[in-house]
Design a protein around this nucleic acid. Structure first.
Lengths: 341, 341
DNA sequence: AGAAGCAGCCAAAGCGCTTTGAGGAATGGG
DNA sequence: CCCATTCCTCAAAGCGCTTTGGCTGCTTCT
């Protein structure tokens, strides 16, 4: 069933039927109702490809899905995707996912844009001085960045968490509790958020004349296994830190296990603050010792990003180009006063 | 840059250029090379929407992404997606993801098919007597099911794990170790795999004249939290089971925590076998007490499914319509001889 | 030498939709 | 009674590609 058949069925022209469907004003109310009724009865659905060809609008937003063995099936990514999905559903949009070799993300992005399959692009997992930015700016297609790229001019639309502030605040709390020896279990160092969190932490330490010890720092993919390994290593150091910051509750999962295995008490012998992306899988409050966290929902970020992108495509709304969200610092039992030396 | 412009540039007809690009034989070798060179220089990319409209082929496979609060951002789902992605990348295919209200999966699927945006459909999270099957069969579009639907005629193409056998084998091993009191932490009871795993377990028990105790059984979303709660409850029962089967390592994560908190020793006081989907996030061998598992990679299943679907769309290959994979039973330290009564 | 075959190219139709520019039927004003 | 105005409707032109069905000129066969 296509437009032509439908219009013949109704004894109307294709134009009128099309207008009736797309809510143009110059159609008689009665006619419109007749059309809508026929649509319901016949189950007619406009062919998207044709619609796209005619309008240039695809009703979909493109994203490149990272597929490296490294960050494969990242919980953080799928949590975010869920948020995007929720919002897209409300607008009858969908995503076009292009899986990409991580060495060719720029190429994947370019192909996606050129394919004519999408109206807007989205990128995340930003790196320092990210090469994708230049490419996106050169395209004449709306895009939105989740995160930022340190080292690049901030002249692009983004939504980011204030990672510096989050880890600055967390560190400050630990300092106030008397801690002096810190460890950091961070994400991969080339990622922007990891750089900023580290910066935030260092800034807070510097205020007290302290510096982050390299041996107490690890930059790894954010899995519980890596958290375990890193923490085990750190706990064997001569000068053991009493406070740990984790870039994810997933890392914290492993770290806590290492701490338990070492016979140390979380919140007493050692304090830990993790960043909580509000993963459905892993709630900081359901750890044996509930975790103190800096919290910001990845899912909510997904919703917001979809909202902005769709708004932009439809030209219905204008948004601030750049948003910086604040994380909440939520104190639970994993933080306590520093033990006496 | 479109075909017309390109052909004018070359002084050829659109037909010839199109043929040259699509590998048709009736083009002079020399001409073809000229065309390819021009494409490289101009960066011409065919408009997918037009291509699709003309051919009816979209180069993409559609899937409905579950977005309920319940199974949101499911690690299992994204592990699988990664596999799909890997394979799709090799063939320059992409996915169209439609997020769907879980109460309207059939509708979402229908819309996706009708949109003309996809060449093939994929579904998973099958339920008993799943209504989507009828709908898929009525469509004239290739589809593939991950899992099966108990209660429906198995006359559709699927790829499934032999869940019955996996849990039958696991139970049998535990029986051989002398266990008599069993618990099962399973996924939602309406899901096909959960039903089959339970069946497999019951079959093995029945051979020894045993039955599964309802109070020792839980059917929940597969999160560590649910695993924790369920196990805590079960451990408080008067007649405590000595052997536990978990439908996921994620559930096991919580269950193991409950076991530890109860002061019980895994592999001595209580034995546990979990099904391992080979999640990158959660390796059974890196548990404090490494877990005995039934193993089958979700990601590998994703790869295979993409391979089959794409092959079908391109009509290049024929595959067996139905595949049943066997899980491997891998013994580690979480299983041991049943403790004396 | 004429018929037949073939390689290589092209013009034009068509995929299903939107949108432009115009026309026909009422209505109201002069 | 005629013209202007408003409301509704339509035919036709595109969107950028593939594909059908020729057409041309050259080689090969009889």
């Amino acid at each position: 069933m296509n437009l032509k058949q439908l219009s013949e069925l109704l004894g109307l022209s294709q134009t009128t039927v099309s207008r009736a469907l797309n809510g143009y004003p110059e159609v008689n109310r009665e006619t419109r109702e007749r059309v809508l009724k026929a649509v319901r009865e016949t189950g007619y659905r406009p062919n998207k490809a044709a619609q796209r060809l005619a309008t240039g609008k695809a009703g979909s937003i493109g994203l490149v899905m990272p597929t490296s063995p490294g960050n494969s099936s990242d919980v953080h990514f799928s949590e975010f995707l869920t948020g995007l999905g929720e919002e897209a559903l409300r607008h009858d949009f969908h995503f076009v996912l292009t899986p990409a070799d991580p060495n060719d993300e720029v190429g994947a992005l370019r192909r996606l844009a050129a394919s004519g399959n999408v109206d807007a692009l989205f990128v995340n997992y930003m790196r320092g001085h990210d090469p994708r930015l230049e490419m996106l700016k050169s395209l004449s297609m709306p895009f939105l960045v989740h995160g930022r790229s340190i080292g690049s001019e901030p002249d692009y639309p983004f939504l980011d968490l204030d990672n510096e502030a989050a880890f600055y605040d967390a560190t400050k709390l630990l300092l106030q509790l008397g801690h002096r020896h810190f460890a950091l279990l961070n994400g991969p160092i080339y990622l922007d958020f990891a750089i900023r969190r580290r910066n935030g932490m260092e800034a807070a330490l510097a205020e007290r004349g302290l510096a982050l010890d390299e041996t107490c720092t690890s930059h790894t993919p954010m899995t519980d296994e890596q958290g375990l390994f890193a923490m085990e290593r750190i706990l064997q150091l001569e000068k053991r830190p009493t406070a740990v910051l984790c870039s994810s509750t997933v890392l914290a999962l492993g770290a806590v296990r290492a701490i338990n295995q070492a016979g140390l008490k979380l919140g007493e012998d050692i304090s830990l603050i993790a960043h909580d992306d509000v993963l459905t899988l892993l709630k900081p409050e359901s750890f044996t010792v509930p975790l103190t966290t800096t919290r910001s929902s990845l899912r909510a970020a997904g919703v917001r990003i979809a909202e902005r992108l769709i708004g932009e495509i439809k030209h219905t709304e204008t948004f601030p180009a750049q948003e910086l969200w604040k994380a909440e610092l939520i104190v639970r039992a994993s933080t306590g006063v520093a033990p006496a030396e």
